[in-house]
Design a protein around this nucleic acid. Structure first.
Length: 158
DNA sequence: GCCAACGTTGGC
DNA sequence: GCCAACGTTGGC
């Protein structure tokens, strides 16, 4: 199957691209997603080798770099750890409800691509990220959108 | 910090 | 199965 592309949101004060870069093997598991649609993407559609845009939400919202998917979806064990902030009594080792994938750091952009800047780019006007009211923390990106973002990241800031 | 928009829960 | 109420997300 062809490579797919995704955008994954994280609040930088919780887990930033710098944290990902500093993780062992520059790899982390993407735990804590508790939204069914986002879960379905991770559980059913994400593949090893898929491209990921790393997005910082809330604080200076911007796409800040890229990563790649390095595992298929597998159960998110933080859901059955009562000590975890992501604990969910619905889920257990025998009946996992929530899933995650592993991602590995690939690049950090020379400058963040702010949400406000992306809104001005015609080629991105249909991007899920820019649609009103979309709160999905894992969302699909087209190959063309992915390419456009990489191109913008390479361009010098005005 | 505000608040609009969303997803989920729970009463009926 | 509906839908109001609630908690959360996330841009501004």
């Amino acid at each position: 199957m062809a490579k797919s592309y995704w955008l994954m949101k994280s609040e930088p004060n919780v887990f930033s691209i710098t944290d990902l870069k500093g993780s062992p093997g520059k790899t982390c598991y993407w735990d804590g997603v508790r939204n069914y649609k986002a879960r379905n993407y991770m559980r059913d559609e994400m593949k090893v080798g898929d491209g990921v845009l790393f997005y910082h939400s809330r604080v200076d919202p911007a796409v800040v770099g890229t990563a790649k998917v390095v595992s298929k979806g597998y159960p998110d064990h933080t859901a059955w750890d009562p000590a975890s902030p992501y604990y969910d009594a619905k889920s257990g080792p025998d009946n996992p409800v929530w899933y995650m994938v592993d991602i590995q750091f690939q690049s950090e952009f020379a400058r963040p691509l702010a949400l406000a800047e992306l809104r001005k780019v015609r080629a991105l006007k249909n991007m899920v990220l820019l649609r009103k009211g979309v709160r999905l923390s894992v969302q699909p990106v087209t190959a063309e959108e992915f390419r456009t973002i990489l191109g913008l990241a390479r361009r010098v800031s005005k």
